[in-house]
């Protein structure tokens, strides 16, 4: 579509984005509230952030969550990238539709079902639950998201460069690391980040699959939220929101710079040819 926006378009954008952002902005503002009553403004204060530093339970949970997210996002990225390559490149093989079904189904599957089924698997395997079972669970659903993100990158991929490398006798593994991976890297990085934040965010699957000693931050937040809204939780949430926002904006800036660089390179290359 090329025609300019009308007043209706502008209004709907402004209202839409206010709806999306206002709750988060209010949450951030009220994390600096002096009053313990979250919704009554009692003056500016950072005391809730200070009190967070002394809340060992919360800090422990945050540390567990970060480790779970890091490990599961990394494994999920490897598996998900492999799955994306299979989906786009591997042609026909027996059980292909089952494979793509298993990739897409977890994207929409209710978390309660995923959590319950994984828990029952761990029980059936006689596996004691805790840190590692949460990692396995998170890896499983996160790899599907990674696969979808990387797949979209692979679809718009010029295969002739790879074919050229292979014609010149480059072994497939080397071709992958020298050519394919650098080109799909933005997708892989985005996939890792998505997997990381999904794990950071997950309450339901973690609640089912965790065991003693491995309480994650969302579980901690959830149990406190059930008791009521407190400025301290607002403060935790604000820190998380700020971290994630910075990471996403940084990643998108890097991707865009790479895009610009790539376009410039291509122009130079074609210019040299002509």
């Amino acid at each position: 579509m090329t025609r300019g926006p009308t007043w209706f378009n502008i209004t709907s954008l402004v209202m839409g984005f206010s709806f999306l952002y206002l709750p988060i902005v209010l949450l951030v503002i009220y994390s600096f509230n002096k009053s313990r009553l979250v919704t009554v403004w009692g003056g500016f204060s950072t005391e809730w952030y200070v009190s967070l530093l002394h809340n060992d339970q919360l800090l422990d949970a945050a540390w567990v969550t970060l480790r779970v997210a890091f490990v599961s996002a990394s494994v999920a990225t490897v598996l998900g990238t492999a799955a994306a390559l299979v989906l786009v490149r591997s042609g026909r093989f027996i059980g292909r539709s089952l494979f793509s079904g298993m990739i897409f189904a977890p994207l929409v599957m209710p978390e309660v079902i995923l959590g319950l089924s994984l828990l029952l698997l761990f029980v059936a395997m006689d596996q004691s639950r805790g840190f590692w079972t949460v990692i396995l669970a998170h890896t499983t659903f996160a790899m599907c998201y990674v696969a979808v993100v990387v797949q979209s990158r692979l679809v718009g991929f010029d295969k002739s460069i790879e074919e050229a490398a292979e014609d010149l006798g480059c072994p497939p593994v080397k071709t992958f690391f020298l050519i394919t991976l650098p080109i799909i890297l933005p997708g892989v990085v985005a996939g890792w980040m998505l997997a990381f934040t999904l794990s950071l965010d997950d309450l339901v699957v973690a609640s089912f699959t965790t065991g003693p000693g491995a309480t994650t931050l969302p579980m901690k937040i959830y149990s406190q939220v059930r008791l009521g809204v407190t400025p301290e939780i607002n403060a935790v949430c604000t820190i998380l929101v700020v971290l994630v926002t910075c990471a996403v904006i940084a990643a998108s800036l890097v991707t865009r710079r790479q895009q610009v660089q790539k376009e410039r390179d291509e122009r130079t290359a074609f210019g040299a040819e002509g």
Partner: peptide, 22 residues
């Protein structure tokens, strides 16, 4: 596009929690 995607990256639990106060 970025502005639409950004809340999606923010924790689901936090976004639901934010509405309680409202």
């Amino acid at each position: 596009l970025m502005l639409v995607i950004l809340p999606f990256w923010t924790s689901f639990l936090i976004r639901v929690y934010a509405w309680i106060g409202i």
